[in-house]
Amino acid sequence: MNSYSFPYLKQLESESIHIMREVVAEFKNPVMLYSVGKDSSVMVRLAQKAFYPGKFPFPLMHIDTGYKFPEMYEFRDRFCEEIGATLIVERNEEWIAKGCHPLKLGTDKCCWYLKTQGLLDALKKHDFDAAFGGARREEEKSRAKERVFSIRDEFGQWDPKNQRPELWDLYNTRLNEGQTVRVFPLSNWTEVDIWNYIRMENIPVVPIYFAREREVIARNGILIPVSAFSTVQDDENSHYNNEKIRKINCRFRSLGCIPCTGAIPSESTTLDDLIIEVINTRKSERENRVIDLGSDAAMEDKKKEGYF
């Protein structure tokens, strides 16, 4: 009888695979949003499993802002080539050319132009009707109420008060004219699950998740990597003129754009260390994300507008 016992991670895996197969069966033109982070890495592995021995029948799409870490670009290109995935990279060139930057426009506006608008334009351009995203309900409290299949109107907007009930594993995949859907196969995974799965499956991730000595400045309690400012084209050094550069052992717990991604002090250089750190931490996963700190409802507001 015991042979039928099913460990938690395998159960989550099976559910995510089920979701991906439903999408491929029911939608004309799905895409997987690939952000290069750990959740994306796990999502890609699940897609490989779902359609094995075939290849997963959809492209990966990265909405690039130009402000990602160099290690991320390098990892992205190598990883996608190794697994033979089709990678689409889309950027909001118009606003990147205008020098859109959080320190100039504020984080909310910068996110809106480079990420939200970039994503909506890209979905339209390629006529994707379903987009997989790696968001998890545990990450942030407005995400706790997100459906696995999240319907968006033609402007990509989320209406939290008017969501379809989701019962059993029977997903309603029908859309009205103009609607698209964001699908979150990792909805029920937690940060600890993601890392445990990465270890169990030996999944490659960007090396900056691990600790080493880095130059940072402390701003509003967040450790911003010094390299953040080298990506600003004009008056590049002016932003940290009077701030002290420190060298400390740190790592990045979740990855975003350099100016808005803080490091956390850490000694975790191996996967085992890192998992123990994540289990013991008393801070939430997005503690280092400047974009969430605007207000108690910062994420919810972005989501309603079409952000993930």
């Binding site: 706790a144 109420k145 008060k161 029920n188 600890v192």
Partner: peptide, 21 residues
């Protein structure tokens, strides 16, 4: 209470999922 409307009104309007181990 996940959504700002709920927090403002002090009510819960939908199913929310929580995780612990």
């Amino acid at each position: 209470d996940g959504l700002s409307t709920e927090r403002e009104q002090g009510i819960t309007i939908d199913v929310a999922y929580r995780y612990f181990e």
